[in-house]
Computed example of a mutant assay.
Amino acid sequence: MVPPILLLWALLSVMVAGACTFTFLQPFWIMHLDCIHAFGMISYCYVDSDYENSRELCTAYGGYYHLGNIPSGAWQASCVLYGVGCVLMCLSAFLAICTVIMIRAHNKKLSLLSGYLQAVAVLVMGAGLLIFPLGLNSSFYQHYCGKASAPYNFGHCVVGWSYMLGIMGTALSIFCPFLSQYTDMNATDLFS
Score class of each variant (00 low, 15 high):
residue 3 P to N: 13
residue 4 P to T: 07
residue 5 I to L: 14
residue 5 I to V: 12
residue 6 L to G: 00
residue 10 A to Y: 00
residue 12 L to S: 05
residue 14 V to I: 14
residue 17 A to F: 01
residue 17 A to N: 03
residue 19 A to H: 03
residue 20 C to H: 04
residue 20 C to S: 11
residue 23 T to P: 02
residue 25 L to A: 15
residue 27 P to K: 06
residue 28 F to R: 06
residue 31 M to N: 13
residue 32 H to C: 10
residue 35 C to G: 13
residue 35 C to H: 15
residue 37 H to F: 15
residue 41 M to A: 13
residue 42 I to Q: 02
residue 42 I to S: 03
residue 42 I to R: 04
residue 45 C to F: 04
residue 45 C to Q: 03
residue 47 V to C: 08
residue 55 R to W: 11
residue 55 R to D: 15
residue 55 R to F: 12
residue 58 C to H: 08
residue 58 C to K: 07
residue 61 Y to A: 03
residue 64 Y to A: 12
residue 64 Y to K: 11
residue 66 H to F: 14
residue 67 L to V: 13
residue 69 N to G: 09
residue 70 I to A: 04
residue 74 A to I: 07
residue 75 W to T: 04
residue 78 S to W: 01
residue 81 L to W: 02
residue 86 C to P: 02
residue 87 V to G: 04
residue 88 L to I: 02
residue 88 L to N: 01
residue 89 M to E: 09
residue 93 A to K: 01
residue 96 A to G: 08
residue 97 I to L: 14
residue 98 C to V: 11
residue 99 T to S: 12
residue 101 I to W: 12
residue 101 I to A: 14
residue 101 I to R: 09
residue 103 I to P: 06
residue 104 R to P: 07
residue 104 R to D: 09
residue 108 K to T: 10
residue 108 K to Q: 13
residue 109 K to C: 15
residue 112 L to G: 01
residue 113 L to Y: 02
residue 116 Y to W: 12
residue 122 V to C: 08
residue 126 G to A: 12
residue 126 G to Q: 05
residue 131 I to Q: 02
residue 134 L to A: 10
residue 135 G to I: 05
residue 138 S to D: 11
residue 138 S to P: 04
residue 139 S to M: 10
residue 140 F to H: 07
residue 140 F to Y: 13
residue 141 Y to F: 14
residue 141 Y to R: 01
residue 142 Q to S: 09
residue 142 Q to V: 05
residue 143 H to E: 14
residue 147 K to H: 13
residue 147 K to V: 15
residue 149 S to D: 07
residue 149 S to T: 06
residue 152 Y to D: 05
residue 153 N to P: 03
residue 154 F to R: 02
residue 155 G to E: 08
residue 155 G to W: 07
residue 157 C to E: 07
residue 158 V to S: 10
residue 158 V to Y: 09
residue 161 W to V: 13
residue 161 W to N: 09
residue 163 Y to F: 15
residue 163 Y to S: 04
residue 165 L to K: 01
residue 166 G to K: 00
residue 166 G to T: 05
residue 167 I to V: 15
residue 170 T to K: 00
residue 173 S to I: 04
residue 175 F to I: 05
residue 176 C to K: 00
residue 177 P to A: 08
residue 185 M to T: 02
residue 185 M to C: 07
residue 189 D to C: 01
residue 191 F to C: 09
residue 192 S to K: 08
